[in-house]
């Protein structure tokens, strides 16, 4: 009897928790596929809402993908060398710098966006360009890239590896390309997936920075819930899921791999 309780109660709790999390998602997906949500599934299933989402918001989808990729490029170009410098010169100053890079994480996206608007909002061409949103995304995602690369670099004896390469005739640039980057790869990969996922899903900051002609995926989602039929908005959610879930899974895989390297 006792064993029955110890075995089944936790299972029931777990299932309930899963249901609590999953039912709204399933409901939302179903809503995006039913002809009329208020009449229920009996009204039949359809893909027309998804087609409608595509017609209305495909620009947002492409903009989001474009932003995510350029944001990734920017965080790679800035973040990997930054993490390298931090890993190579451990000390008080670099710790302070590391905290500075991480600061955007502690500030609400809204406040960050306000600061950007205050500073650059009057620069005409910039304010209305997609690069303005990109700057916000880079600010927000850079700490993730730096942290991820830094943790892998900190786990290997980078200094001795570089000294080894130098003794064999490799100059600083060669050492970075041949030794630092390949050995940081698990961290770079994990960081890259995090950056892309965060950039695609970012709402707070983007919502403040966007213009009517520059709506990203999450901003478009908010827009569709505010101004479209519930079925359209739900179909939009489904599209969003299809894009984000594979990224999330790849991210899990990559960070597990990076963890293994560090052990």
């Amino acid at each position: 009897m006792m064993r029955l309780i110890t075995r089944h109660v936790p299972l029931a709790v777990t299932l309930l928790a899963c249901a609590f999390l999953l039912i709204p998602i399933i409901q939302s997906i179903l809503a995006g596929l039913t002809v009329n949500y208020f009449r229920g599934l009996s009204s039949g299933l359809t893909l027309k809402w998804i087609v409608q989402v595509w017609e209305l918001y495909s620009d947002s989808i492409f903009l989001s993908i474009w932003l995510a990729l350029t944001c990734l490029a920017a965080t790679l170009v800035i973040g990997v060398p930054a993490a390298y410098v931090l890993a190579r010169n451990p000390g008080r100053i670099t710790r302070v710098l590391e905290e500075f890079i991480s600061l955007p994480l502690a500030i609400p996206g809204l406040a960050l966006a306000l600061a950007l608007l205050q500073l650059y909002g009057t620069v005409q061409g910039f304010r209305t360009s997609w690069t303005f949103i990109l700057v916000g995304h880079v600010l927000y995602t850079l700490p993730f890239m730096v942290r991820s690369v830094l943790s892998v670099l900190a786990a290997i004896d980078l200094r001795t590896l570089e000294e080894g390469a130098a003794s064999l005739g490799a100059g600083p640039a060669r050492r970075f390309v041949d030794v630092v980057v390949p050995n940081a790869m698990p961290g770079i990969l994990a960081g890259a997936l995090t950056v892309v996922t965060l950039s695609i899903g970012e709402f707070n900051l983007t919502w403040m920075l966007h213009t009517p002609y520059l709506k990203t995926l999450p901003v478009g989602l908010a827009d569709s819930y505010a101004s479209m039929r519930l079925e359209v908005a739900s179909a939009y959610t489904l599209v969003f899921f299809v894009m984000i879930v594979p990224l999330l899974m790849a991210m899990q895989w990559a960070s597990a791999r990076a963890q293994r390297i560090m052990q």
Partner: peptide, 27 residues
């Protein structure tokens, strides 16, 4: 260091984990 044409063997060996034995030796 890189222009002195020395060879160095380190206590921790400092072998490049991202390369095979052959690539390490040929570096």
């Amino acid at each position: 260091v890189e222009s002195r044409k020395i060879g160095m063997v380190f206590q921790s060996y400092a072998l490049f984990p991202n390369m095979s034995v052959r690539s390490n030796i040929g570096y």
